[in-house]
Amino acid sequence: MSNAEIIRSHYAASDRGDLDGMLAPLASDVRWTEAAGFPYAGTYVGPDAVAANVFARLQEDWDDYTVAIDEVIDGGDVVVGIGTYSGTNRATGRFFAARVAHVWRLKDAEVVAFEQFTDTEMVSRALRDPSTGSGTRA
């Protein structure tokens, strides 16, 4: 299986809601970085930290949260996924859609690093209470 196919299988598992399938290609010491300004910003080390600090929180905080990947670019040991995030924040009831790019770095058929690039302002707008304009923490 090529590195691009490994990443496509991660996205397919995400589409199915299959957490084990999403975590399967991650190395035990994967460094997963969510963009500054994103509600879950930071770098998490290891699949358990990614599951708890990213995937579980997305499930808790958003209704119908999805990532629709339009293109996977095969750069060998570096794979890029380009698509759109969308969802409705449970606390505010506000919907968002934002373009996203994921940069995946693989070694020996395992994901060793992930970095997210997205329009965090679009997400922030969904987190703000429309009646007060103040933020809520997702």
Results as ranks from 00 to 15, higher is better:
residue 103 V to L: 12
residue 83 G to N: 07
residue 48 D to C: 00
residue 125 R to H: 13
residue 49 A to Y: 10
residue 97 A to T: 08
residue 42 G to I: 00
residue 114 F to L: 08
residue 76 G to M: 04
residue 39 P to M: 00
residue 116 Q to E: 14
residue 56 A to M: 03
residue 40 Y to G: 04
residue 117 F to E: 07
residue 91 A to E: 12
residue 81 G to A: 06
residue 62 W to E: 09
residue 70 D to Q: 14
residue 69 I to Q: 05
residue 76 G to E: 02
residue 116 Q to C: 11
residue 93 G to Y: 14
residue 102 H to S: 12
residue 81 G to D: 01
residue 108 D to W: 13
residue 112 V to G: 04
residue 106 L to I: 13
residue 75 G to Y: 10
residue 44 Y to I: 06
residue 126 A to R: 01
residue 76 G to T: 01
residue 92 T to S: 13
residue 64 D to E: 09
residue 50 V to H: 03
residue 103 V to T: 15
residue 71 E to I: 05
residue 47 P to M: 02
residue 61 D to H: 08
residue 114 F to N: 00
residue 94 R to N: 14
residue 50 V to Y: 01
residue 124 S to I: 07
residue 98 A to P: 05
residue 44 Y to S: 00
residue 48 D to R: 05
residue 90 R to D: 06
residue 106 L to V: 11
residue 107 K to C: 05
residue 111 V to G: 07
residue 115 E to C: 13
residue 91 A to F: 11
residue 124 S to E: 04
residue 55 F to M: 07
residue 79 V to N: 11
residue 93 G to K: 15
residue 121 E to Q: 13
residue 102 H to C: 00
residue 117 F to M: 14
residue 80 V to H: 04
residue 113 A to E: 08
residue 61 D to S: 06
residue 69 I to T: 08
residue 110 E to A: 13
residue 84 T to M: 12
residue 114 F to E: 03
residue 82 I to M: 12
residue 126 A to E: 03
residue 50 V to K: 01
residue 63 D to A: 10
residue 48 D to A: 14
residue 85 Y to H: 15
residue 72 V to N: 11
residue 73 I to M: 11
residue 121 E to H: 06
residue 99 R to D: 15
residue 73 I to K: 03
residue 107 K to P: 01
residue 100 V to Y: 09
residue 90 R to P: 10
residue 71 E to D: 06
residue 68 A to H: 09
residue 73 I to Y: 11
residue 39 P to D: 09
residue 76 G to W: 09
residue 111 V to P: 03
residue 84 T to Y: 04
residue 102 H to N: 14
residue 88 T to R: 05
residue 118 T to R: 08
residue 119 D to F: 08
residue 111 V to K: 09
residue 62 W to A: 09
residue 96 F to E: 00
residue 108 D to Y: 14
residue 96 F to K: 13
residue 106 L to E: 12
residue 115 E to H: 06
residue 57 R to W: 04
residue 42 G to V: 01
residue 110 E to C: 10
residue 108 D to V: 14
residue 84 T to R: 06
residue 85 Y to M: 07
residue 39 P to E: 10
residue 101 A to M: 14
residue 81 G to L: 03
residue 117 F to P: 07
residue 120 T to N: 07
residue 69 I to S: 12
residue 111 V to Q: 06
residue 105 R to N: 03
residue 81 G to F: 04
residue 42 G to H: 02
residue 87 G to D: 03
residue 83 G to V: 10
residue 95 F to M: 03
residue 72 V to G: 00
residue 48 D to H: 07
residue 109 A to I: 09
residue 105 R to A: 13
residue 101 A to E: 06
residue 102 H to V: 12
residue 114 F to W: 09
residue 46 G to F: 06
residue 110 E to K: 15
residue 88 T to Q: 06
residue 46 G to T: 08
residue 63 D to N: 08
residue 110 E to I: 09
residue 109 A to S: 15
residue 89 N to E: 09
residue 97 A to N: 02
residue 84 T to W: 12
residue 105 R to V: 13
residue 99 R to E: 12
residue 68 A to Q: 08
residue 102 H to F: 15
residue 70 D to R: 07
residue 66 T to S: 13
residue 46 G to D: 05
residue 75 G to Q: 11
residue 57 R to F: 01
residue 104 W to T: 15
residue 48 D to K: 06
residue 42 G to S: 01
